[in-house]
Nucleic acid binder design. Structure first.
Length: 197
DNA sequence: AACAACCTCAACCGCATCAGA
DNA sequence: GTCTGATGCGGTTGAGGTTGT
């Protein structure tokens, strides 16, 4: 994508950390024009940033209803289980955790959970010689179920991430412990299915 | 106090995919 | 069917903060 590269590597483009002023300008333009056409947003805001950079800033930091820090035990458990099922599909995992971004979850995984899981794996390997059943087939199934709604919907607005398997009437983005409880139950069912299969 | 090693997280990069011309 | 621009995703980097010596 030559355009993207040239656009983002222009010498005059701002790089590095965003200032409060830049955040403010970006938020203002998005409030008026919406979170789309990022190139235009960047221009209208008068920011020397590429559209990609603006999008990232909005999605990971400025978007309303973003939770920051303090990932609860419940959320951590959910991340672990979703990662077991989905692998490094951070955006999918983030879609199941209201208020969390894929970047945050990815970072959290890389700095906290990957070590934990590696340690666990080591322990389990040393304690038993039985190989873990690969999860790939299940992940592929998740993808095939997903891709109909996920990919197509992803071209819609930002709420598209909330769509998931089947029941589109359910609001997965709803905040609070209820949603997490529901997801935990879903995962229990899913793991039970894996045991059965 | 000074320095090194380590950790965290915001931001960047490159690629894949999609939609519209 | 092909090309081009826009968008989204996952991997990686690096600055700044924290901890250990």
């Amino acid at each position: 994508m030559a355009s993207t590269i040239s656009q983002c590597t222009k010498k005059e483009a701002n790089r590095g950390a965003w200032t409060a002023e830049e955040d403010h300008k970006l938020a203002q333009v998005i409030a008026v024009h919406g979170a789309k056409r990022w190139k235009c947003v960047a221009m209208k805001a008068g920011l020397k940033r590429c559209g990609k950079s603006c999008r990232l800033r909005w999605m990971n930091y400025l978007r309303p209803n973003i939770k920051r820090g303090n990932i609860s035990d419940q959320e951590q458990d959910l991340i672990l289980r979703l990662h077991k099922l989905l692998g490094n599909r951070w955006s999918l995992i983030a879609g199941r955790l209201p208020g969390r971004t894929d970047n945050e979850i990815k970072n959290y995984w890389n700095s906290h959970l990957s070590k934990k899981t590696k340690q666990k794996e080591k322990q389990s390997r040393s304690s038993t010689t039985v190989e873990c059943r690969p999860q790939k087939t299940k992940v592929m199934e998740m993808e095939s179920v997903d891709n109909g709604s996920e990919r197509v919907a992803s071209k819609g607005d930002e709420d598209s991430k909330t769509s998931f398997v089947g029941d589109e009437s359910f609001d997965y983005s709803s905040e609070g412990p209820l949603n997490l409880e529901w997801m935990s139950k879903f995962l229990e069912m899913d793991e039970a299915w894996l045991d059965f299969a």
